[in-house]
Design a protein around this nucleic acid. Structure first.
Lengths: 135, 135
DNA sequence: GCTTGACCTCAAGTGCACTTGAAGTGGCAC
DNA sequence: GTGCCACTTCAAGTGCACTTGAGGTCAAGC
């Protein structure tokens, strides 16, 4: 599979071309040439974009993600950083789980106002107690 | 417990006073009076702030959160909306869980570059396949 | 009664992640 | 060979969630 032009990458990745140009400018992806003015990318850019999307979803900033790529374009993720991010993510997941249960309960709860429901209040209190600072 | 001044609310909630003023301006919280220039808040504002923080952590925008409060200041959360948000949250949680496992694996994986590890690639691919649009 | 300092207002600024707009270019279909 | 139009650049704009700065005020402590 040879080089893909930007429209093709946009189509396959779901990212608008403007975002691809923006990411290139930020050094997150690299084009391998041009056909006329048109940028050409290697197919592996799709995997890279998936990785970027994943990182974003996990709450990494673009800058943090950029630091995960070495100059040669390979992924160079610091393992200790990964471990700590996994930990952080774990905390987030636990918090969101509590919240999900809170929402589910609130949706089903018969109390006229949610704040009158002891369970809801307990959930709010529990969540706020451990809320340090979010993303 | 009588009214708390803004400094007290800031101290107890962990939000800077500037954020409290900003939230008041947006209609997310309400002060009940002044001592001189100084805003006074009812203690219940702390619960409200906890609810706001919770909503933010769940990915609601301030505008969405504002819509959850009725004019009388009571919580008036649409139950169907809560259910759908719980669903959404559930998807996020599952995605983050996959990601967390990915990070854990990557941290432990002996492959020289993460992209050479079949498991890591599989995780990236799996996560990206279902990634529609994030927060 | 005067100073002090934490609050006040209002406008502007910040950081992030993009998006949009104007003006230009070049490969491809005809 | 010429017209189209999807691409190009570069600067400016957008939306969100706040934060900062300048200039002002007032309750409390001395």
């Amino acid at each position: 599979m040879p080089a893909l032009d930007i429209a093709e990458v946009a189509r396959r990745s779901g990212e608008p071309a403007s975002t691809l140009r923006f990411y290139e400018e930020k050094g997150l992806i690299a084009s391998v040439g041009r056909r006329g003015l048109r940028r050409l990318f290697e197919p592996s850019v799709l995997e890279r974009l998936a990785l970027i999307a994943l990182g974003r979803a996990a709450g990494f900033s673009l800058q943090e993600i950029a630091r995960m790529f070495a100059a040669d374009g390979r992924v160079r993720i610091d393992r200790a950083m990964l471990r700590s991010k996994a930990e952080e993510l774990d905390k987030t997941i636990r918090k969101l789980s509590v919240l999900r249960e809170g929402l589910r309960h609130a949706a089903a709860c018969p109390a006229p106002s949610h704040m009158e429901c002891p369970k809801f209040r307990r959930i709010v209190r529990a969540a706020s107690t451990h809320a340090k600072r979010r993303r």
